[in-house]
Write a protein that binds this DNA or RNA. Structure first.
Lengths: 215, 215
DNA sequence: AAGCAATCTTGACACTGTCTATATTGAGCG
DNA sequence: CGCTCAATATAGACAGTGTCAAGATTGCTT
């Protein structure tokens, strides 16, 4: 007889549930994100992580080969969350894309990056991308997210009158704008969080005009 | 009699030359940047730094109170370099600002961020800005740089016809675009460096149209 | 020549990631 | 039921890190 509470509740339906601890992999991912959020990158260590979860220092290494791999796991979850945002179509007035819809989309993106700052930093940080050690699953999840973004931009362009704008290029540049705003806010360079809405609207207007005004 | 080569050459004209080693503070800053560039953030440690310069592990602590303070010093130098770029006025056709001038400016900015990636990452990274431990001199240097950028944008606007665009807001959003492009390239998310010019031109055109087309 | 502050050094401590055993456990099969 | 085995957890160890404290050296100033 074990004194683990999980023994009383049938949770075997979860496929990859670890044996001993009960749900270690899941808890590692959550605790890692919590530490990143509350104490920053320097506050996350494998040892503290393990201690906070009541396991030995090397226990997490049975679920993630590396600290790097753990961070990849966290980022992967971030991309999954981002896709929900990027895939949700903005409201459409009378079946046609409007500037208001673009505004909404921009705000959603920036809001996501702020509310999930600890994920966003990993998802688009040099720590992972320059390491040449990206998990395959992370790479594909990230690719899907960018694909979904391009899909969105294509919707904006359906009603566009400026035929001089290349779809991919515009997607890249507009994404750069969103990413730049997000990073400046997340990294604490723009501390004036109240300016978020104004900046978002300015960006959205810029996008919309770029697409709908003949060059 | 000392065997230091500096003893044979009069370098006392340099104001803050350290006593024993000859030029330690300067060399620390350079070696730090070199390590960051060649081995990434994880490749820079105070101890390795000292060892590479042939001094003891704690010698650098007499020139920088912290590792953080050292990084602030590196970033500060980066801002000084950036100001050269941002202050250099783009060519002007017939005394009036042109789209080509904006293109040039955009390219200069992005090129700077790529060629000085190790500085740029520190200058605009969370590592420093979220630490609440910014050096006063760094803070003022960064402020000056942003002020110079706004100055540039004002030049763009001198000939603008779209009076609906607020100067500060536009400066923030356009800077977000440049920063976003730079980070995506630096952090290794956009690996296609050949796309830099195309993206820069697309961004410049977007800026220009935003300012010169009536809303 | 003396004193003093700036500079450099060694020693120490707590902390990190992670490798190498070793131990425990739960699941599957006879 | 009982055995086996792989999955999971553990303790020990090692090199590396930032940085504090105490002492040694140096060169400028008086």
């Amino acid at each position: 007889m074990t004194n683990s509470p999980e023994a009383l509740i049938d949770t075997t339906s979860v496929s990859d549930k670890p044996y001993h601890h009960g749900d270690l992999r899941r808890q590692i991912l959550d605790e890692a994100a919590r530490l990143l959020r509350e104490e920053g990158e320097s506050g996350l260590s494998m040892r503290k992580l393990a201690q906070n979860l009541g396991v030995s220092r090397t226990a997490p290494y049975h679920h993630f080969t590396d600290k790097q791999a753990l961070l990849c796991g966290v980022a992967e979850e971030g991309f999954r969350r981002l896709q929900e945002v990027v895939r949700t179509p903005p409201f459409v007035d009378g079946g046609e894309m409007s500037e208001a819809a673009v505004r909404l989309f921009v705000k959603r993106y920036v809001q996501f990056s702020i509310e999930n700052a600890e994920y966003y930093e990993l998802m688009f940080g040099a720590r992972l991308w320059k390491s040449q050690q990206l998990t395959d699953s992370l790479r594909s999840e990230a690719y899907d997210a960018f694909k979904a973004y391009i899909e969105q931009v294509r919707l904006w362009q359906q009603s566009m009158s400026n035929t001089d704008v290349d779809a991919l290029r515009f997607a890249q540049v507009s994404w750069s704008t969103l990413h730049g705003m997000s990073r400046l806010l997340i990294d604490g360079i723009y501390l004036d969080v109240t300016a978020i809405n104004v900046m978002s609207d300015t960006a959205a207007k810029m996008f919309w005009q770029q697409l709908h005004i003949p060059s």
